[in-house]
Simulated assay, not measured.
Amino acid sequence: MKGLVQRVSHASIVVDGETIGEIDNGILLLLGVEKDDTPEKASKLLDKVLKYRMFSDEEGKMNCSVTDIEGGVLVVSQFTLVAETRKGLRPSFSSGASPALGKELYNQFVNMAKARHPKVSTGRFGADMKVSLLNDGPVTFMLEV
């Protein structure tokens, strides 16, 4: 399971002209599910996302997590994140989860996130989403478990 986290001042998702998810200060998480992923891996990644110190403290050092700053988390399913890109000029998705497993683990991740963090918003699995964000920094990290 892979999570690309971006520190944002705000972010939103629009599907069919309607805003379905948005946050202010926090993390935009692009979530990629691979075929060997499990609910345990989802839980480990969520723990890392919520505790990862990527926000500045009073001295300007990255010592605070999204939990510490009481920021939002916007979770977006991102199938292309698990693409193999080392060879050739066309991505391979052979390590990606099936749509059924991807949706199941994405939903489990979101449910766990909502149970553990007060400000969680989402996109819509499998939808054509328009994602807008203001990356703060920019600060972006790839988290894997």
Rank of each mutant, 00 (worst) to 15 (best):
D37W: 07
S121M: 13
I27W: 01
L4Q: 09
V131F: 12
I23Y: 06
T38P: 05
P39H: 09
V76Y: 05
G32N: 02
S9L: 10
F79A: 04
P118D: 07
K51F: 07
G26I: 01
T140Y: 05
T122A: 06
E59C: 02
S94F: 09
D36P: 00
H10E: 12
R116F: 02
K114S: 15
L81D: 10
L105N: 00
K87T: 07
G102P: 02
A100D: 15
R124T: 13
P138F: 06
D16R: 13
E58A: 13
V73W: 00
I69C: 09
K41L: 12
K130R: 15
F141S: 09
T67E: 13
D16T: 07
S56D: 14
N135K: 04
I27K: 01
E104C: 02
L143T: 06
I13W: 03
G32F: 03
G96M: 00
G88Y: 04
A113K: 05
E70Q: 08
R53M: 05
G60N: 11
S77F: 03
S92C: 05
I13A: 02
L101T: 10
I20W: 08
K41I: 11
E22M: 11
S121D: 14
V49K: 00
C64P: 00
G102A: 14
V145I: 12
N63I: 14
A115F: 08
P118I: 00
L29E: 01
V66L: 09
F141I: 10
M62D: 07
K35F: 06
F55E: 02
S12F: 06
M1N: 02
S98G: 06
P118N: 12
G123D: 05
Q108V: 09
F109G: 00
R90S: 13
D136P: 03
F55W: 03
F141C: 09
K61L: 12
G126I: 02
N107K: 11
T38N: 10
L134E: 09
V82W: 01
N63V: 12
T67K: 13
Y106T: 07
G60I: 15
A97H: 02
Q6R: 01
L143E: 08
G3V: 11
V110P: 00
E18M: 12
R116A: 12
V110A: 04
P99W: 14
E58V: 11
L45W: 03
R124Q: 15
A115S: 14
Q6Y: 02
M112T: 08
K61N: 15
L50I: 11
V15D: 12
N63D: 11
M112D: 15
E59R: 14
A42G: 07
G32I: 02
Y106N: 06
L74N: 01
S121A: 15
F141Y: 14
R116Y: 04
E34L: 06
Q6M: 08
S77G: 10
V14P: 02
P138H: 10
K130H: 11
K87R: 12
K2P: 00
P39F: 04
